[in-house]
Amino acid sequence: MNPYVPRIAVIESIVDETPDIKTFRLRITDGGFSFVPGQFVMVSVLGVGESAISISSHPDDAEKFIEISVRKVGNVTGSLFRLKPGDKVGVRGPFGNGWPVDKAVGKDLLIVGGGCGQGALRPLILDVLRHRDRYGRVEILYGARTPQDLMFKYEHDVWASVPQGCLLLTVDRVPPGVEWKHNVGVVTRLFEHVTVDPANSLVCICGPEIMMHFAVKGLLSMGFKGDQIYLSMERRMKCGVGKCGHCQIGGKYVCKDGPIFTYEELKLEPDKIL
């Protein structure tokens, strides 16, 4: 097995999530695929390049499809946006560790998402929905720039109806003429509504690093410990398999030691905003 050679995947469908985020449903053409929530794939548009993208669908569906939710930010993602159902992309992976779904059994779960970081959290949320009895109380906090920038709007009602749980939404600003009945302000402002028990819970966060920085600060002051706070980190990756070096944060490889780390694991490492 050559870990650098992508498998071929067909785009089955595309959902416009926001003005700059699309969800692509991919079918791997040459056999099985399995992953755990929080893992990522390296997606190739051959001739343009390759990018690391979190899987946003649930592992139970992996035999049929995987989904990736992509924000248009560069050459590869920009080229993905021009593709249509039926077009082919390259996929390597899955890579990385994943959310602590086993450790979370029987515990309360606080899920904090910011912007397109919600893509990496969706498999975890879907896991809660499909295996509700595994977890205690589950609270989902999700913030975006504006109401239009919220992903998975078509699922929010389902997320919000989780028994023993809640979905709290917030946006940085509401453009004139847009209807919005939820909160306005940064996602950490929602922390005052959090009711999970810091003594018996895990927190899973994915979003811009500056948002995670403030989220960690807030959580620590609320009594959560560094080893209860799980963060999905993002760095440029060229290989995904711990060789190319690019994704290092000090002594850690985001691609193989992560992408999910506890704050405890990362707090002493250099070259981060956290």
Binding site: G47, G49, E50, K238, C244, G245, H246
Partner: peptide
Amino acid sequence: CFDVYDVLELNLRSGVRVR
């Protein structure tokens, strides 16, 4: 440490991935 990039031929139909 290495970088990885694609080089597309001028025919835009074939190319190589390089490290």
